[in-house]
Structures are given as C-alpha cells and as structure tokens.
Deep mutational scan, measured.
Amino acid sequence: DVEEQIRRLEEVLKKNQPVTWNGTTYTDPNEIKKVIEELRK
C-alpha cells in the first residue's frame, strides 16, 4: 500500500533517521522527500 509506505517514510523523516529504500540508504531529508514524491506519482 503506497499510502502506508508514504506514512512510514514521513514518520522516519520527522525523527531525522536514515531510510533504506530499495537497497539504498538515504540520510538526507531532501532525498527522503524525493522518494516520497516519487511514491505519490
């Protein structure tokens, strides 16, 4: 469920934690926001 994935990513973003997505770890909040934007398409 895309909405659920977006919610999880936004939670991690608020906590300033790194996100691992498709084998890539993102630590930059701007990169995480880009992943969220991609999911919304």
Score class of each variant (00 low, 15 high):
15 K>N: 13
15 K>G: 07
11 E>Q: 07
6 I>Y: 02
11 E>D: 11
12 V>R: 14
17 Q>R: 07
13 L>D: 01
5 Q>V: 14
20 T>C: 15
25 T>S: 05
18 P>I: 10
31 E>V: 07
29 P>L: 07
35 V>S: 01
14 K>A: 14
5 Q>P: 02
7 R>S: 07
34 K>W: 08
16 N>A: 07
30 N>E: 14
13 L>N: 02
34 K>V: 05
36 I>L: 14
22 N>G: 13
25 T>M: 07
12 V>M: 15
32 I>E: 00
21 W>Y: 13
7 R>A: 10
13 L>F: 07
2 V>Y: 09
36 I>G: 00
16 N>Y: 04
28 D>H: 05
18 P>C: 14
13 L>K: 02
9 L>G: 01
38 E>D: 06
35 V>F: 07
20 T>S: 15
24 T>F: 11
20 T>M: 13
23 G>A: 01
23 G>F: 02
41 K>I: 09
21 W>C: 15
29 P>K: 06
41 K>Q: 13
29 P>S: 06
1 D>E: 12
36 I>F: 04
41 K>H: 10
18 P>N: 12
6 I>F: 02
38 E>W: 11
32 I>Y: 01
29 P>W: 07
28 D>S: 05
8 R>V: 14
11 E>Y: 02
32 I>H: 00
21 W>K: 11
1 D>A: 09
12 V>L: 15
8 R>M: 15
27 T>Y: 09
5 Q>N: 10
33 K>M: 14
25 T>P: 02
3 E>Q: 13
16 N>P: 05
13 L>V: 09
35 V>T: 02
13 L>C: 05
35 V>K: 03
41 K>M: 11
8 R>S: 09
7 R>W: 04
39 L>K: 00
9 L>T: 01
36 I>P: 00
28 D>K: 02
25 T>E: 10
25 T>L: 14
20 T>P: 03
24 T>C: 07
20 T>D: 15
1 D>L: 10
25 T>G: 03
28 D>N: 05
17 Q>E: 14
18 P>L: 08
40 R>P: 00
27 T>F: 09
11 E>R: 04
34 K>G: 09
36 I>S: 00
20 T>Y: 15
12 V>I: 10
10 E>C: 08
9 L>Q: 00
20 T>W: 15
10 E>L: 12
6 I>L: 07
37 E>F: 04
17 Q>P: 05
17 Q>D: 09
38 E>T: 10
4 E>M: 10
2 V>A: 07
36 I>N: 00
32 I>A: 03
34 K>T: 06
19 V>N: 03
31 E>F: 04
38 E>P: 00
2 V>L: 14
40 R>Q: 07
3 E>G: 12
23 G>D: 14
12 V>N: 14
16 N>H: 12
36 I>A: 01
13 L>S: 05
4 E>G: 08
32 I>R: 00
38 E>R: 12
21 W>R: 11
36 I>D: 00
32 I>L: 05
24 T>I: 15
13 L>R: 03
30 N>T: 09
33 K>A: 12
26 Y>T: 02
16 N>M: 08
37 E>L: 09
31 E>I: 06
4 E>L: 09
11 E>P: 01
20 T>G: 04
30 N>Y: 10
29 P>M: 14
39 L>H: 02
7 R>D: 04
40 R>C: 03
36 I>Q: 01
6 I>G: 01
21 W>E: 09
18 P>T: 14
18 P>M: 07
